[in-house]
Amino acid sequence: MSVYFHGSFGLNRIYMSGILTALLKSPNASPEQLAVPFGYQAPFAQKYRTWLVKTGILKSSRQAELTTFGEVIWSNDPKLQNTVTKWFMHHQLTFDQENAEAWHFFVQSFLQKNRTFTKEDLQNQLAMKMMPHSDKHFRKGSPMNTRISNKLIECYTKTEALGDLGVVTIVDRHKYQFNNPKILGPWNDPATLAKSYGN
């Protein structure tokens, strides 16, 4: 499901880079083998492989094959620390509803209408958006909406995710603010992306 592809594992560039490096070195490694150095079990590696697909770096979560954009990122920023890489990930997650529906909704719809918001505001509007998929899983007050909302907010406030982009900041314990920052990208082709790294 493109709504809950992440499970309980949020976007974490350190983990993504580690899994990507291990995967490219040992393409046939099992999820269990990939996860062991991080102290986790197979679902950890499976979810971060999916994150690498959703952010446009891997072609498939079943194969160790970079996209053409992923090849540019790997050759310029294998640790996934560069601001260009972070903006690329942001665009991949938010510009195609079919790829990551909750991220698309959050950035393209919710934030455009809510300059400041609470987690409860996000949960309630996310429920309205997602209920057509499954009333059981996405009804108002469902645990899944809470988990997805948490991952969305963490993605744009935690440093190990995309917090450095300044899209969302924490106002206090219960309130967040959309900053509408100046963005880099999106990029239409790998050559243009490469130039953004200074190549």
Rank of each mutant, 00 (worst) to 15 (best):
T116N: 13
Q125G: 08
L93I: 14
L93Q: 05
D96S: 11
L122N: 02
L80D: 02
Q112I: 08
P78M: 01
D135R: 15
M131R: 11
Q97W: 10
L111Y: 07
T85Y: 00
K79C: 07
D77T: 04
F117T: 00
N82C: 14
L111E: 04
N124Y: 06
E71K: 15
L93V: 07
T94F: 00
E65A: 12
A102N: 06
N99W: 11
K79D: 11
F138S: 02
L66P: 00
Q125A: 15
A102V: 08
Q108M: 09
R115D: 10
W103M: 09
A102H: 03
I73Y: 05
N124K: 13
N124F: 07
D121Y: 11
K119T: 08
F106K: 00
L122W: 02
W74E: 08
G70K: 03
H104E: 01
V84D: 01
Q108D: 09
E120K: 15
T116G: 06
W87N: 02
S134F: 01
F110S: 05
G70E: 00
H90G: 04
W74A: 08
V107N: 02
S75Y: 11
F88E: 04
W74N: 10
T83D: 10
M89A: 11
M130H: 07
E98C: 10
H104V: 01
N76I: 01
A100Y: 04
G70T: 03
E120D: 14
R139N: 10
M130A: 13
Q123D: 10
H91L: 02
Q108E: 11
T83Q: 12
L122Y: 07
K129Y: 09
A64R: 01
W74F: 14
L66C: 05
D77P: 01
D121C: 09
Q92E: 10
H133D: 11
F88K: 08
D135L: 13
H137D: 15
W103F: 14
K119F: 04
H91A: 04
T68W: 07
D135W: 10
N114I: 06
S75M: 14
E101K: 06
L122D: 02
Q112E: 08
N82R: 09
F110H: 07
N76F: 05
Q125W: 12
A102T: 11
F95M: 15
F110R: 01
L111M: 11
M130N: 09
T118C: 04
T118Q: 03
H137L: 13
Q112R: 14
F69A: 05
E71P: 00
T85E: 01
S109V: 12
S75P: 07
F110A: 06
T83H: 09
W87C: 00
H104N: 07
D121N: 15
N82Y: 08
T67M: 10
N76W: 00
K119C: 03
K119D: 05
L66D: 00
L111S: 04
K119E: 11
H133T: 13
N82P: 06
Q92H: 15
T85F: 03
